[in-house]
């Protein structure tokens, strides 16, 4: 199978707490994979490890078939990975979105900027400093960088967090558009409607480990997801 990014047997401990014990995740081109699980099950930690922002205690990370013994975001990003954080912003507050996009195009070449701005409904605010943007606009602006970059793999930590249902729809559409271009997308999130509508493949995280669920229909039938996450079974 053609795998873009693989995290194999990843383990991570914070002090006394074993957050990840044997997590496994594979990202395939053109597929949106959703990591589901209750708070504190290690979803964000796994994404940070795969993005090279946190060192794993053990485990292997492969990107485009190459093993990264010490993954670092800037190295992975140069090879085609993009990381969208949830606990920090991605935009420099004193620069405009246009300046961000200019920098990105100088680095990685020109993209279809008008189409990206149109898709994310950002034309009207593109010249404003990003500190003046609303939370939803900032989230969409960060995603605009990812779309213009056309990465091979996007790791999006809670891309629907704290934004309106309308913005969630726009973000979901943009993530689907990236996947349609062949990008492998991984997302996390508790906005279950948007997550189910956006992802093709679902992974359940529990006790620091991962369990492959399968398709959207499988996710909706998954008893653990229903009982421990949705509380409906």
């Amino acid at each position: 199978m053609n795998e873009l990014l693989v995290g194999d047997s990843i383990g991570k401990r914070f002090g006394e707490r074993q957050v990840l014990s044997s997590a496994y995740l594979r990202v395939q081109p053109g597929v949106v994979t959703a990591l589901l699980g209750r708070n504190g099950t290690g979803k964000s930690t796994l994404l940070k490890i795969l993005a090279g922002l946190l060192p794993a205690d053990y485990g292997l990370v492969f990107f485009r078939g190459r093993r990264y013994p010490r993954p670092r975001l800037h190295r992975l990003a140069a090879d085609g990975l993009f990381y969208l954080p949830v606990d920090r912003g991605l935009l420099s507050p004193d620069l405009s979105l246009v300046q961000h996009l200019d920098a990105l195009e100088r680095r990685f070449g020109a993209g279809d900027r008008p189409a990206v701005l149109r898709l994310l409904e950002l034309e009207a605010v593109r010249h404003a400093r990003t500190r003046a943007l609303s939370g939803g606009e900032q989230r969409r602006a960060a995603l605009a960088l990812a779309l213009l970059r056309r990465p091979l793999c996007l790791l999006a930590d809670e891309p629907f967090h704290g934004i309106t249902p309308k913005d969630q729809e726009v973000v979901g559409r943009a993530l689907r558009a990236l996947a349609a271009q062949g990008c492998g997308v991984v997302l996390t999130g508790h906005e279950i409607g948007s997550v189910l509508a956006t992802a093709d493949d679902f992974v359940w995280m529990h006790d620091g480990s991962t369990q492959q669920i399968g398709t959207r229909a499988d996710a909706e039938r998954h008893w653990r997801l229903r009982r421990e996450y949705l509380g409906t079974a």
């Binding site: 975001l73 800037h74 190295r75 912003g89 991605l90 507050p93 960088l145 970059r149």
Partner: peptide, 17 residues
């Protein structure tokens, strides 16, 4: 503070540069 370390890392620019 300005998130530029993360932004630049996404642009392939690391601390050594």
């Amino acid at each position: 503070r300005r998130n530029e370390d993360l932004l630049l890392a996404n642009l392939g620019v690391g601390p050594a540069r």
